[in-house]
């Protein structure tokens, strides 16, 4: 799959919109769980959507190091070779 980092970030922001019920403004530094007030179960649902969108696996272990949108974009971008 050939995608660039911007596309990765755009897709992640799109997917995150469904979980951003309070309409928090998203920046690269947004803490996905804490700032958006998403519970642990929904974090996992969101990550599964990201995995399916990019056809990659993000293990729970890798996820434990990810807090912000920028970190998730880095991880996915690296995985898809963007």
């Amino acid at each position: 799959m050939s995608v660039d980092r911007q596309q990765v970030e755009a897709t992640i922001r799109d997917l995150l919109a469904g979980y951003n019920k309070d309409g928090v403004e998203l920046t690269p530094e947004t803490d996905i769980a804490a700032d958006l007030n998403i519970d642990s179960a929904d974090v996992l649902n969101f990550v599964m959507e990201v995995e399916d969108a990019f056809d990659v696996d993000i293990s729970l272990n890798e996820l434990s190091d990810v807090r912000t949108i920028a970190q998730l974009v880095d991880l996915v971008a690296e995985r898809v070779g963007a």
């Binding site: 996992l44 649902n45 990550v47 599964m48 696996d57 293990s59 729970l60 272990n61």
Partner: peptide
């Protein structure tokens, strides 16, 4: 499975293995 019991999630974490969820 994404709906696994807490003891399964915690066992996975304890193992240090790579953990992948499915719907």
């Amino acid at each position: 499975d994404a709906d696994s019991h807490a003891s399964i999630f915690d066992g996975c974490r304890l193992s240090g293995a790579k953990v992948v969820l499915f719907r």
